[in-house]
Every structure is written in structure tokens, then in C-alpha cells.
Computed example of a mutant assay.
Amino acid sequence: MGKVTYQDGIAILQLIVFPFILVASLFIWKRTGWRVGAKIWRYPFTLSLIRLAGSIATLISIDNNSENVQIAIFVCQLIGIAPLLLAYVGMLRLIDLEKKIPPRPLLLVTLMAIIGLILGIVGISTADTSHGYTPGTLPKAAMGLFLAVYVLVILLTAWLFYTYSFATLKYQKKLFLGIALSAPFLLVRMVYSALGDYSNNPKFSVASLAENNHTSLTVYLCMSVLEEIISMVIAMIFGVSAILQSDFVKPTREGEEPKPNDV
């Protein structure tokens, strides 16, 4: 059996934390309603599955460090950004009880994240990783879309907060707080990925992670893994708190009347 490394330790941390995020997202999803809540809470659920898959692939690489395993690790690292961002788009949907945000802007943001996801997967899957991974045009384009999605989410959150002003319900305030408090951690997470794609600094290079470079792994842990975990934990804590509020209103499909919390 191969030696357990620093990178494997980070993978074990994710294997410990993300099951809790997965369970929390399922709990909120169920209380929100499986059908309507799918547009909101499937994203943190999906992110948890991706992170668990990436961690398992990392541990598999201890004894089988093949090119396919490395590609799986790289893909899981990149594609997790899309559901991470879309989790916050979902929270905006839940806040916007009166549907003040027109459907098209949210649809556009969602499509941008999905297109970024597709570009990232294609870019990494077709890259030559035999001499280490270097981001190509497609992953860089994907990162550009992800950064744009982050900016749009923050702008939409600020606009929605201003629009609702003091008319917010308790559950809406909880969700606003969840987004606002996790946004700085999410920003650091995005900056880390952007530096990895757009700069030549080896501290942010995925290739350095594959080589178990301790400096790169520490930066990865502090700027990516921990920031992502903290942002999602904050979102899940406030998400659970929001749906347990007595004034929580379940989201509905187009044309249906809002449903008060009956659980």
C-alpha cells in the first residue's frame, strides 16, 4: 500500500465534512418539497457528491496513480464550482417569494454556470496530462463564466435586498445572512481557482497538487478546501434555520399560490 500524503489528508477531511453537508441539503430539500425544491437544494447535494467522489479518487491514487485517476481528480475539482455557485442562485429563488427577479436573469445565470461546467469537463478530459496539467482555452473560458456568475449572484442579492427592504420575513433574513456571510469565503475560493487558471504561479497549479508540493497543498487547503467548506456550512446552517422559521413559505411552481410552512 502506498504512503498516505498531505493531499490524502485533505481528501479525508472532505470525506468527513461533506456527508454532513449532503445530509443537511437533503433535509432542507425534503422540507422545501422534493419537486419544487429540486431547483434549489439539488446543487449543494450534487456538490457534496462531487467532493466525495474527488476525495475517493484521491485516495485511490495512493495505490493507482494512473492518468485516468488524475483526470478524475482534476474534473471533480473544477466541476464542483458550478453547483457551488448555483446553490446560491437557489437560495435567491427561495428568498424571492414575490418573484421580483424576472425568470430570464436567473435562467441566464444558471445557463452560464452549466456552459462553464461543460467547457471545463471537455477541456480537462481532452488535455494532455502526461507531463502535468496546464489549463487550456476551454478551462480558462469556463473559469471566466464562473467568475461572471459569482458577480451576478452578488449583484442580484444586493438588488433583491434593496428591493425587499424592511418587508423581509424572518426566513428571508436568514437566507440573506447566509449568502452575505459566506460570500467572502466564496470569493477567496473563486480567486484561488482563477489564479490557478490565469497565472503561472506554481502555488496555485493543479500540477503542483499532483506532485504533493507542500506549499501548494497548504494554499489549496486554506484558499480552496476550507473556504468552500466554511461557505457551504454557513449556507446550510442558515438554510436549515430558515425553513424552521414559523413564517417560512414553501416555493411553488409557476401559477401556484405560495404555501405557508405546514411542517
Score class of each variant (00 low, 15 high):
T126H: 07
T126P: 07
T126C: 05
A127L: 10
D128C: 11
T129H: 13
Y133L: 03
Y133M: 03
P135Q: 14
G136P: 12
K140L: 14
A142C: 06
A142L: 03
M143V: 03
G144T: 02
F146G: 06
L147F: 06
A148G: 10
A148Q: 05
V149H: 06
V149T: 01
V149D: 11
Y150W: 08
Y150K: 11
V151H: 09
V153F: 03
L155D: 01
L155N: 06
A158L: 13
L160F: 04
L160T: 03
F161P: 01
F161L: 07
T163F: 04
T163M: 10
S165Y: 01
F166H: 13
T168R: 07
L169H: 08
Y171W: 07
Y171D: 05
Q172T: 02
K173V: 01
K173F: 05
K173E: 13
K174M: 15
L175N: 05
L175A: 01
L177I: 00
I179M: 10
L181E: 11
L181G: 05
S182I: 04
S182K: 02
F185C: 06
L186A: 09
L186E: 14
L187R: 02
L187N: 04
V188C: 11
R189Y: 14
R189G: 14
R189F: 15
M190N: 05
